[in-house]
Simulated assay, not measured.
Amino acid sequence: MVITPLVAEFTLGTTPIRMVWLILLYIPIYGFGVLLIRELIRRTGGGPGSMLLMGVVYGLVEEGIALQGLTSPHLYHVARWAPRVLGINTAYAELNLTYHVVFSVTIPIVLADLVFPDLARGPYLRRRGLIGTASVALLGVLLLRASVPPQEDPGYVVPAAALLGFLAVIAVLSTTALWLLPKAGRSRRSPTGTPVPSPAVVATACGIATLLFMGLLYPFGGAHRSAFTHGDWTLVPMVLAAAVAVAAGATLRRWSAATAWTRRHLLAAVTGALVAHTLFGLVADTHTIADGVALAVAGVIMCVLLALLDRRVRDGSAGELRRPV
């Protein structure tokens, strides 16, 4: 619950470290929301595919319903990043839905499972705890909706058609993630003999993929559109970013299915993505020297903690993972 807002907001620099008190605003939607997702996945027997789909669900709830950023023509100036399609801010949607899948949902859950390996395969909560978590998560959505859009985008309300569309997609993805995929995945494939590179190579590959994906979509350095493009040329970096995401996902899926894939490889993948996204934040999201120094210090602390976790995983868990993660 604490890792999620720290990873998603503060280690990227979108929320300056000097405003760390905002974690009180973020914990209900980020912390309780992702805890709810983890509990539902563990209770229904879902796997990595379920986690990815529920990450999209989380992104649609936060960005589409709470912040209204997927459709707003004014919020954060994201409408000018790329051509809008059916009222959707396309580049912003591609960037943020993928970002939430990886950094808001998957990485915090994986880190918690690595820190507490004995609890990794089962739910944390009883029934009353699950109901309470869902209630606070819903409150978090309402809190974010009531606090940010009225200040950043006063007067805008997401169109009814878009809202119904978001709700329909959320229902379909949730049903697929929590019912269809677990049902279809009961007969899991056997581990393969695919060669797996060293954890250092895995971390480097994930870091490069993260930098490429974010650099292609997120305008920085004074740019108003993705990758310093103009007009419809913005579609080019959008396609390239999608190709990077698909290639990275397919590669990780193949590696993680191998018998040689261990928890150290999993942590290396997480570490590479986290370090790269903080480095990108230093370039794109710090606007004062103080913010840059604070984010750099936070990045160093993050690296130290990840190194300590790597040593703990190496010393206490030499076994291989029994199924793809």
Rank of each mutant, 00 (worst) to 15 (best):
Val270Gly: 00
Val246Tyr: 11
Val61Ile: 11
Val196Gly: 01
Thr210Arg: 03
Ala248His: 08
Arg186Trp: 03
Leu22Cys: 11
Gly165Glu: 05
His287Thr: 12
Met302Glu: 10
Leu178Cys: 02
Arg18Ala: 08
Val148Trp: 09
Leu114Trp: 02
Thr288Asn: 12
Ala268Ile: 04
Ala248Gln: 08
Ala160Ser: 14
Arg314Thr: 13
Val283Pro: 01
Leu111Ile: 04
Arg189Gln: 12
Ala171Pro: 06
Ala66Tyr: 01
Val157His: 15
Cys303His: 04
Arg186Ser: 03
Gly122His: 15
Pro108Phe: 04
Pro16Arg: 04
Trp261Asn: 00
Thr259Arg: 15
Leu70Met: 10
Arg188Cys: 05
Ala200Thr: 10
Ala296Gln: 03
Leu235Met: 14
Pro149Phe: 01
Gly49Arg: 00
Thr262Pro: 07
Val283Tyr: 07
Gln68Ser: 10
Arg311Gln: 14
Thr204Leu: 15
Leu267Arg: 02
Gly207Ser: 10
Ala227Asn: 10
Val34Pro: 00
Thr288Arg: 11
Phe213Gln: 03
Arg188Ser: 09
Glu9Cys: 08
Ala8Ile: 06
Gly45Pro: 03
Thr15Asp: 04
Phe280Pro: 01
Gly316Glu: 13
Lys183Val: 05
Leu211Asn: 05
Leu295Ile: 03
Cys206Ile: 00
Ser147Arg: 15
Ala257Met: 01
Arg264Asn: 07
Pro48Arg: 12
Gly47Asn: 01
His265Gly: 05
